[in-house]
């Protein structure tokens, strides 16, 4: 699972930091830090974070390997 956040798009809504706190963290009031290569056990949380981002700034791959069907990733 690899992810990248388009920080031009990110507006610091912090939904990701709420849904996957071990992967995304706010730094100050609106800066975002993240782990670009989170552990496998974070997959479901990352998928939720990707889906919940109000500005759809998170691109991740390898989210569907768990077999669950969700259209959350930005994989086109």
């Amino acid at each position: 699972m690899r992810l990248v956040v388009d920080l031009n798009k990110c507006q610091g809504y912090a939904q990701c930091a709420f849904l996957a706190p071990d992967v995304f963290a706010m730094h100050g009031e609106e800066s975002l830090l993240y782990d670009a290569r989170p552990e496998e056990e974070q997959r479901e949380r990352v998928a939720r974070a990707v889906a919940a981002c109000p500005v759809q700034a998170i691109t991740a791959d390898g989210l569907d390997r768990a077999g669950e069907s969700q259209g959350a990733s930005d994989v086109r």
Binding site: R2, L3, V4, A25, H27, L33, Y34, D35, A36, R37, T59, A60, D61, G62, D74, V75, R76
Partner: peptide
């Protein structure tokens, strides 16, 4: 800052 490994920032693939 220790939030990510410098050696593990490979870009996700769109396809």
């Amino acid at each position: 800052l220790g939030m990510a490994s410098p050696l593990r920032t490979e870009l996700p693939r769109r396809r």
